[in-house]
Computed example of a mutant assay.
Amino acid sequence: MLRAEATSHIKKQAKPPYHPQLRNQMMKYIRNVGGKAYRNLKNKSYEEIRDIYEKVKRFNDKFVAIGSTEDEQAIKEMNVKAEEPSKKRKGTIRKMKSSRIIKKRKIQKSDDELKNFLKVVDFEGDSAQDVEVMEQHSLISRFSIVQSPEGEYIAVQRANGHIRAFNTLNEILHILDRQDLYHLHRLVIEYYEHIPPTGLGLILHGDLTTMMETTEESDDELWRNQTEWEIISWRFYESTGVHILELENGTMIHMLVEQRYPLTRELMQRMLEHKLEVQKETEDALNVIRFVMKQKEDLEREEE
């Protein structure tokens, strides 16, 4: 009798969750890891959510930063295999014609060469206090736009009760990490789900939406007329993995370092010539340069 009850209990525990529960779990993963907005997911079917979840998970599991140790090891292994005798033609040795090897050879540069595209500067607003707050890490629990006699500002509260006020998203990026960024994006999207964003909230909502939801195939008004863009700065925030393009007309385009956006080959060339502004030369900063150079060269091959 006890054995039967135990078996029944195990079966109950092993029973998979219902589709609604699975759907909610997958949506949570997509929003937190893939940066997708809830409003773009809530009306989709279980099958559609599952497809998006599998795509995001595959990308997250397989993503290897260009120039990272893992990427270098993979290239070495591929080249070693290329030197092995062909099984199809005995007595001959042939090079492995991998498109990845070709691409890697084209953009492979020494660190000294890549550093030519970096410019070390002091970021305004980056103080010892900011670093201290970031180290005392606690998840972001609340966001709001606050009115004051001096104007609007963004209030961000962490779970430990600490509150900071900011005027722009750039200021926030000084003390956030990538997980913070996903949490902030989710909170902002949920906050404006039933009310239209205005003022500073509209700017923050737009910047986060552009960064998180734009893809290489996006056809948005923002990305048109890039030949007319005048670059003021191109800046990298390492803790969040975000690089920002500031234009003369006041537009600021926030981009995740591993995500491709509909940038033209000509604009990326101008970005490289302008140089990426960093607080210090790091491998992550060099990887931003590698990524942009790779995207630019991919476009050049497509145009040939």
Rank of each mutant, 00 (worst) to 15 (best):
E113K: 10
S110V: 03
K104Y: 13
L202T: 04
K103P: 00
L256Q: 07
R3G: 02
K275Y: 05
R23T: 06
Y18E: 12
V56R: 01
R178D: 07
M268P: 03
I93P: 01
Y46W: 11
W234L: 06
E277W: 04
E83K: 11
K42W: 08
P16G: 10
T240F: 03
K294R: 14
M293P: 02
R142D: 13
S99Y: 10
P197T: 06
M252Y: 07
E221Y: 09
M212Y: 04
A155D: 11
S86L: 09
T264F: 06
R270Q: 08
K36N: 04
R142N: 14
F291W: 08
M271D: 01
V120P: 04
T198I: 11
R164H: 07
T69Q: 15
M255V: 07
A285M: 06
I49P: 01
Y191D: 06
M268R: 07
F63P: 00
I10T: 09
L139E: 15
D61E: 14
G35Q: 01
I140C: 03
K28W: 06
R94Y: 12
N116F: 06
E54K: 13
E132T: 14
V64Q: 12
D219A: 11
N170V: 07
Q157T: 13
F143R: 02
W229I: 01
G199K: 06
E171F: 04
I49C: 01
Y237E: 01
M271E: 05
V80H: 04
V278H: 03
I93C: 12
L245D: 03
